[in-house]
Design a protein around this nucleic acid. Structure first.
Lengths: 140, 140
DNA sequence: CTGTGTGCAAACACTTTGCAGGTGT
DNA sequence: ACACCTGCAAAGTGTTTGCACACAG
């Protein structure tokens, strides 16, 4: 695990307070965060707009990735090692799980999306799979 | 194929001009429609708000289903027979394909989502799979 | 006749853009 | 020094709500 400074260097991002704190929010939570989730703990210190822009920047640079929400919103989750696979290409071919009880969406990093056979003529580039149900912690 | 009147009766919906025309829009297109897509051809005759409410009603009654969009928006597609399977329960366990060239999202009704094995403790209820790439018509 | 659908106005929520000034490297 | 980041204000876009009237069954 690299420390914060080297993370920013790795991703070719300037190191600012705002970015560090946003990154902290992501590393402190194990589930995907909406803009609002990120804003909440930081609203008194940073502008809402800056947070929008930072999230976009993080996505562009590959520090975080988008997670679809069933209601049509977007959430974000930090990219793990598994995202950056062998070919230095970015992949997020893992399953996202949204718990209907606690409402949290988590990356099931080790549950990879199986290869699905498409009809003749379709070329797959990217796949997003959102599963809903009851998560581990809520199922007791 | 039942006609319009019986469709509304089947789904326990009142038959109004607005609903009929919205349904027409869905049956005339083979791809998933956003609110804006539905509104466009009807805007001079029906209110934007009515369209919002009608889409919601259609989803609630099971006439159409939501289709996730990669950008976090929602689209809607009409439910085929395959949606209402044996147990009278509603399923949409088919793959949605968004073409990055033409931008259209279609239901691949016959490509069903394989059974994915989740870690201990997770209970699956619903699955949404959005695939992106190049569709049949655009790949030539 | 009754309950539901519709249109209009307005509120509300979410996201983006432009610009001026501040900050990291 | 320069490019980039941030905050503020404002605009833009998308969605919901309340209410009065219209209409389907």
């Amino acid at each position: 695990m690299s420390d914060v400074k080297s993370i920013f260097k790795d991703y070719k991002l300037r190191h600012t307070d705002c970015r560090e704190e946003i990154l902290d929010v992501f590393t402190s939570k194990t589930y995907a965060l909406s803009h609002a989730d990120v804003e909440l703990p930081l609203k008194d210190r940073f502008d809402r707009v800056t947070i929008y822009r930072t999230l976009k920047t993080f996505v562009d640079k590959g520090l975080i990735h988008k997670v679809l929400d069933d209601e049509g919103g977007v959430k974000y989750a930090i990219c793990k090692e598994s995202c950056n696979s062998v070919d230095r290409q970015h992949h997020h071919e893992h399953v996202h799980f949204k718990c209907t009880t606690c409402g949290l969406t988590t990356c099931l990093d080790h549950v990879i999306i199986p290869n699905i056979i498409l009809p003749e003529g379709y070329q797959r580039v990217e796949t997003n799979l959102l599963m809903q149900g009851v998560c581990k912690t809520c199922s007791f």
